[in-house]
């Protein structure tokens, strides 16, 4: 299966996407706010979750960017940001003037492994093989000339087929109007040569926007760089055109297993088996028809 953009658009621009490098995410949530401001996504409630600093909880009809905060004790090496640590070396000799009657000053009591505070901005993956688009009966979901997947709010009839079709659980129905909503990769901005609002607002360039081919090269180089620095846990997610969704238009650099971030480890386009299912259903129907015919013929003889 190829991209619709490859077949349906003449002189299409290169496929555009996001590379979200979570190793430099600082958890500021500017992407979430910029997205809501630009796209007029409604505020969706004051819900204190206790999930670290994440009160957004996940992607949904009213959250098209979601910054996850994960307090992770995996034993993996955290990225060394060169920050000073609390407490001196344990065997340091007492400095002059230090009162000998008191033990040395405070230090952190560390538990098992190093605690990491992972922050990662999640978004619609804009799959190469997009099941949401495959199952949409109205044509509301379509693939743009940029290779992105967009739902048109004036066409969506709220049937909801796309929602269980998404292997990432991204697209979602808005309770108030029944229609399906998700990231458009700021289609309106792309059409006038602007980058999406979230990428524009990201102060550390954790969210990078550009032609997907370039982003993939940049991402490979970043992983190599991190590996050279000893950050062996750095890996890409959704970058591989041979994965179950044909690769994501929005892919990620992660510092742990995808499951740590709440991402499926091996997503598969849910419509992958549809042709085979139809073939088998057809064969079954054919077999049934033959059986009925044989029975009928036999009965008549």
């Amino acid at each position: 299966m190829g991209l619709l953009s490859e077949s349906e658009y003449d002189d299409a621009p290169p496929r555009m996407g996001f590379f979200t490098d979570t190793s430099v995410c600082i958890g500021c949530k500017a992407c979430e706010v910029a997205c809501k401001e630009w796209n007029h996504v409604p505020e969706d409630g004051l819900n204190y979750t206790g999930m670290s600093y994440d009160n957004t909880q996940g992607l949904g009809a009213d959250s098209w960017r979601h910054v996850a905060f994960i307090e992770n004790r995996s034993g993996a090496t955290p990225v060394d940001l060169g920050m000073p640590e609390v407490g001196g070396p344990p065997d340091a000799p007492a400095a002059a003037g230090v009162r000998p009657d008191l033990p040395p000053g405070g230090d952190l009591i560390d538990g098992e492994g190093k605690l990491q505070w992972l922050m990662a901005s999640d978004v619609c993956k804009h799959c190469t093989h997009a099941a949401c688009l495959d199952v949409c009966p109205t044509g509301s979901l379509f693939r743009t000339e940029f290779g992105t997947v967009v739902v048109q709010e004036d066409i969506c009839n709220g049937c909801g087929y796309c929602i269980p079709a998404c292997p990432y659980g991204v697209i979602d129905q808005r309770k108030e109007d029944g229609r399906a909503w998700k990231c458009t990769l700021c289609y309106d901005r792309l059409e006038v040569g602007m980058e999406p609002a979230c990428a524009k607002a990201c102060p550390t360039d954790s969210i990078q926007f550009g032609p997907l081919d370039e982003l993939r090269e940049r991402a490979e180089a970043r992983v190599e760089q991190l590996h050279e620095k000893g950050v062996d846990v750095a890996r890409l997610y959704g970058h591989d055109p041979d994965d179950g969704v044909g690769g994501d238009g929005a892919f990620f650099l992660l510092l742990d297993e995808p499951e740590t971030y709440g991402l499926p480890p091996d997503p598969v386009v849910t419509t992958r088996d549809l042709p085979a299912m139809w073939r088998r259903a057809g064969l079954a129907a054919l077999g049934l028809a033959v059986g009925v015919a044989v029975a009928a013929l036999g009965g008549s003889s």
């Binding site: 979430e32 706010v33 401001e37 505020e43 004051l46 819900n47 204190y48 206790g50 009160n55 957004t56």
Partner: peptide, 26 residues
């Protein structure tokens, strides 16, 4: 301080897009 709010909150606690990100004192 938190990233989502500004000092005594006059500029942020009234802004829904910021209030929803850090909705309560903890």
């Amino acid at each position: 301080r938190l990233t989502e709010h500004h000092t005594a909150g006059g500029m942020t606690r009234w802004v829904p897009y910021l209030a929803e990100l850090q909705p309560e004192l903890f």
